[in-house]
């Protein structure tokens, strides 16, 4: 009897957890690569429409985001329910767009200024009036590369 127990005592039947950190680190790096740091808290409700002809925005550092939608419940008492523009993390007016674009531009190397894309993340229910005003302002500011953010249509026939 004592023979058995002695043997068991010598060999340690523990699972080695030494590789666990490696696995977790792998997961961590995966997430770091595929995600973007959340840059702004959304103060407007944005549910982008569906589309099929999508192009992917490649470099996140060359993209600035303009959100248009109705203020969320929390902000409705202050800002009403009319569609509003959000730049960065605050509500803005159309006149703030040039400054916003300029602020983003200085973070980008000069030779890549032509590749800057403005991503318009617009709620599907918003009417074109405000979108049109934003577009006009973008044109006036010389920001002509625009991406209408949209989701992949799940029932697209391809």
């Amino acid at each position: 009897m004592s023979k058995f127990s002695k043997k068991r005592g010598k060999t340690k039947p523990e699972v080695s957890t030494a590789s666990l950190p490696d696995i977790i680190f792998m997961l961590l790096f995966f997430f770091m690569v595929v995600t973007v740091l959340r840059d702004a808290e959304l103060k407007v409700k944005v549910s982008t429409p569906y589309a099929t002809e999508l192009t992917k925005l490649e470099e996140k550092s060359l993209v600035n985001y303009l959100y248009i939608g109705r203020p969320t419940q929390k902000f409705q008492s202050l800002y009403g329910t009319k569609p509003r523009l959000q730049l960065g993390d605050k509500f803005a007016t159309i006149q703030d767009i040039p400054l916003f674009l300029e602020k983003h531009k200085i973070k980008v190397p000069e030779n890549r200024h032509g590749q800057i894309t403005s991503s318009l993340r617009v709620d599907g229910e918003v009417t074109m009036g405000i979108v049109q005003d934003v577009k006009t302002e973008l044109r006036k500011s010389g920001q002509l590369k625009v991406n209408y953010s949209a989701k992949k249509d799940p029932n697209a026939s391809e």
């Binding site: 977790i24 997430f31 959340r38 192009t55 925005l57 894309t117 991406n147 953010s149 949209a150």
Partner: peptide
Amino acid sequence: ADIAFLLLIFFLVTTTIVEDKGITVKLPP
């Protein structure tokens, strides 16, 4: 492992998997 988990959870919370896709348009000057 705990430290790595902590980092992982931190990144999960602060990031979003955004569908950065859309219709690219060139506006006229």
